[in-house]
Nucleic acid binder design. Structure first.
Lengths: 191, 191
DNA sequence: CGATTCTTTGAAAACAGTCAATCTGTGTGG
DNA sequence: CCACACAGATTGACTGTTTTCAAAGAATCG
């Protein structure tokens, strides 16, 4: 499975064979069954996980018991919860495998060690976080400026692979609308 | 004005006198009048700006001509637009001074040089971006899970200083609700 | 003071959420 | 293979929230 990661990282960054060895030497491969949780609310998240296959969702449950999807993850994405990771405090979020999946896992300790050993990986890591912030910025703009229907079509277009993998009621919760509203948007815009 | 920045950065990070000299030597102080723009839509943003006094807003105008406030900035905050900054491409955003303000300005070139010269500043910079991402994560959660009234009270409590400085219709546009709705929330919850 | 910006208000319309029920497809166990 | 359970998706009727539009009050600034 490491080859998938190798191909992924080489798409955007120059990484030496030594650096790849460092990365490979400290990660473990993990198979996750459908419905299994990588993180449960209340636990501290201290991993760096790269998805080589499958699908995850990061969500939070409010006081009324309603789920709100913070993000999805599919192959060639990372799945993390950075608030808990950064502050070593119990997370408000859950991370659930929506399908059987395989991931590469680095512990926080190992990952930080790698960052201190390899400037190239450190650069990659910085760019990764930069892109994550940019995605958050774009999503915030959509959430404050667009209607339910506009958000739906944007999501479908921006993340077609995710869209085709996850149940619609989770898309609704990602967009901040009810599943019924999403269903009606679909009815009024067939195909 | 540099003393304000010095006090700010020393609150959270150990910074040597040499590093402070590097920072000081490459920044310029700038006074901005009320209503003046640091960035206009279509321009490339290539600065790193620390606010020593005053108040800014970063917003975007949609096709219907409606403003959407991406964020505010007051003293001891940074004001940036990272998508344009990272990719050196024309920004979709505007940055406007809501009051007369003073800022410390580093060019992107200088800032990157500083980061390469000083590991301590690099660490500070990484932490800064980490906190920005965390704030974005929290905001996304509010936007997808909370009602207009809940978002309003949360904003008031979380950013009281900002709340007391900016017009209500900009708060509304930050929260993704209309100014009339915000006005009614206030009427129904006096004091 | 006059102009401008900001805030509030009322009435109507549009939009989205809730509740309860039904429909659909999938997979499991007998 | 069928019956059943279950999760997901849809529907209708209703309710509630939010927006829109138009207008009028406040507040602020030169």
């Amino acid at each position: 499975m490491f080859e998938i990661f190798e191909r992924y990282i080489k798409q955007t960054n120059k990484i030496s064979d030594e650096d790849l060895d460092i990365l490979k030497g400290r990660c473990t491969e993990k198979k996750v069954r459908k419905g299994q949780y990588l993180l449960n609310e209340g636990e501290v998240w201290s991993l760096f996980c790269f998805i080589t296959s499958g699908c995850f969702r990061v969500y939070r449950t409010d006081k009324e018991g309603i789920d709100h999807t913070f993000r999805f993850g599919i192959e060639n994405w990372w799945v993390t919860e950075m608030i808990s990771y950064n502050h070593r405090k119990p997370s408000d979020y859950n991370i659930e495998a929506l399908t059987a999946s395989t991931i590469l896992v680095w512990t926080k300790k190992d990952w930080e060690e790698i960052l201190s050993l390899s400037p190239a990986v450190k650069l990659f890591n910085d760019q990764l976080h930069g892109r994550a912030y940019e995605a958050a910025q774009r999503r915030i703009y959509s959430l404050i400026s667009k209607s339910a229907a506009e958000k739906y079509f944007e999501f479908q277009e921006m993340y077609p692979k995710v869209f085709n993998k996850v149940p619609l009621h989770m898309v609704a919760s990602y967009l901040g609308i009810s599943r019924e509203t999403l269903s009606r948007i679909r009815r009024e815009n067939p195909k």
